[in-house]
Design a protein around this nucleic acid. Sequence first.
DNA 1: TTGACAAACTGAACGGCGTTCTGTTAATTA
DNA 2: TAATTAACAGAACGCCGTTCAGTTTGTCAA
Lengths: 210, 210
Amino acid sequence: MGVAERRAREKEELRQKILDAAGQLFVEEGFANVSVRKIADRIEYSPATIYLYFKDKTELFSSLCWETFSGLKAELDRLEGEAGDPLAGLRRGLRAYIDFGIAHPNHYLLTFCTPVDHSAGKVMDNFQEINRVGLETFDHLQRALDRCRQSGQLAFEDLNTTSQVVWTFIHGTTSLLILNSGDPHFPWVPPEQLIESSLDLILRGLSPAR
Amino acid sequence: MGVAERRAREKEELRQKILDAAGQLFVEEGFANVSVRKIADRIEYSPATIYLYFKDKTELFSSLCWETFSGLKAELDRLEGEAGDPLAGLRRGLRAYIDFGIAHPNHYLLTFCTPVDHSAGKVMDNFQEINRVGLETFDHLQRALDRCRQSGQLAFEDLNTTSQVVWTFIHGTTSLLILNSGDPHFPWVPPEQLIESSLDLILRGLSPAR
DNA sequence: TTGACAAACTGAACGGCGTTCTGTTAATTA
DNA sequence: TAATTAACAGAACGCCGTTCAGTTTGTCAA
């Protein structure tokens, strides 16, 4: 009964081939500029075939985003493993998040800068998967902040609120670095300076009375 | 020779009619879900006519964004006019920005959360107009921060860098409030709390040694 | 008043999109 | 070998942004 296994393996191979082609185009040209037809062309299958493997274009790309953001989670896990100064650890985590966004701009934009319809029946299976990863990422931040509070290096009232505030801040930094870094009409300071100053400001704002 | 004037007036009226219809649809359904044909339907003209008044769909909507963001500039001008405590003024300005984004979510997303091709020949006349308004908004922030430094209520090194950092932060707050406020999968704190805590953190991070 | 002219506007089309339906091919099973 | 099933493709549907050739409409000089 090795037939079924081989079939399943072949099916999985094509699925991965679609994902690879889509991922490459996606990184090169961004979500909006990649059509299902283009992906089909590149792997030399018909567009209809893609719909045998993915419900629609959105699901295809959210699969890719999920894969990518799993990488961020792994990176944060790794960082959390390294015992060390809590404050330095927090800072490294925040940097990892920003660097990750800049390294995967299209995934980041699709995941965090695109309207999603949360209303009614719209379940969005894959986006829930992503959200799971997102939540785990958020938990990392929350734990890191908590460690800093316990070590007395930071001080704040509500952990949940503070975590959300910090997240929105680094999200702002990340998304603007992705979107506007090439804007010649605005006198942007160098990215490195913007990032470091941002982290400085956040940590200063959370530091105990000086 | 009042003919030419009347003609020009009529032309301007239709232009405004297009903008009104587009603006309404735009607010109701978001950029991606509004087609040129839908706008044409609503004003009972052919789609082709719209292209006699606007170069393309992008230009149409960036005109709307420009109009809208002029409103923000006016609001900030008004606030700057009211003499008063610099720190309180800064805080009011930041709040005005966030409130404005939440009040005009689609305009905000299109202006600040959509990739723009800054490369080569892409001049984007209208986006330059928007950018002018954006720059003026940024100047407001910069001046407000400078006043706080001069009054001794805040302390920081580089004004330009600090202004950009603060802007990216409130942009993060604004954009996430717009995009994810309805997400049932994430335990968001109430918007009001997120906003106020964000402002607290920023101002605390910039306050002189305590 | 008439005819030339220009401006305003439209119908129809182009090429592309996401997606679905129907049919064909090829491999497996009985 | 015949029946069954899974994988796949061609063609189409109904959208989209945009363009272009042509028609209507109003104005002005003769």
